[in-house]
Amino acid sequence: MDPVLLVASIMVSATPILLAAIGEMVVEKSGVLNLGVEGMMITGAVVGFAVAVGSGSPLLGFALAAVASAALSLSFGLLTQFLLSNQVATGLGLTLVGLGLSALIGASYEGVKAPSLPKLDIPVLGDLPVVGRMLFSHDIMVYFSLALVVGVWAFLKYTRAGLILRAVGESHDSAHALGYKVVRLRLAAICFGGACAGLGGAYVSLVRVPQWTEGMTAGAGWIALAIVVFAGWRAWGVLVGAYLFGGVTVLQLNLQAAGTTVPVELLSMSPYVVTIVVLVIISARGAAGAPASLGRPFHAST
């Protein structure tokens, strides 16, 4: 088994979940639980694909996928933030809407081929032995997703806006009392989460597969939700979780392809079992919990 190829495959496989999960983490940090990730991802997948086919530019596809999914997430935002609807149910409704809408939009794009996103030709680094092929020969979205993790981490840790976002997620009433615009902030977070999910979906339809088929995200949004929990609501944790899950998935397929003697049924449940086991080990040592206001509706009574 060639570790160079393995790592390269893992990075591609993990990127959609990573993008969606890092966005959802920001949403949850602000105290909002949006279970509609799957619906936003599939919308991003179809819009990104359609735009890339129409314009010939995959990057434009990614950009508009982010915009479309952010717009879709706004419907969730309006319902939960202004009309104070239940977040869990609204998120699940968003998934239904996304799946239905994407299938209707995508009907005419079945079997069409999209322009491919070129791999970056990074000078010097890309020519390095081993690591060059392993780490420095990917497309731009892989690096963008990694940069996004760093960006989110720095934003939450070092910026004033990040601090306010976390405060809102921990106690919206106190944050409100201090004069912060809770609803506005949460709407921004929801949009950001939607945009990231859209990018993740577009990565599936434009790079990882690449094609459009109805229902093609096949549950990746749910995995992204689980990864946020796995991460203990920390940016680095999201990175570790997405690469762990993607890694075990790719590894088990490779083990099968290499003809290992481990029974297939154990291999195919391994990504889920490993994720549980690792989380148990982490949480046994005491881990950060969820934002205190997660999922609770906020209504300014004064």
């Binding site: 088994m1 060639d2 190829l5 393995l6 495959s9 591609v12 496989s13 959609p16 599936v204 990882r208 597969v209 094609q211 088929t213 229902g215 093609m216 995200t217 096949a218 990746a220 998935t249 790719v250 397929l253 490779n254 099968q256 392809a257 290499a258 003809g259 297939v264 195919s268």
Partner: peptide, 26 residues
């Protein structure tokens, strides 16, 4: 070599399985 993906239809997993087979020399 056979890779089982426990699904009739999962484009992302089918893509990953193909890549895994290629990585293993198929």
């Amino acid at each position: 070599s056979v890779v089982w993906i426990s699904s009739w239809f999962d484009p992302a997993k089918e893509a990953d399985a193909t890549q895994a087979l290629l990585d293993q020399g198929a």
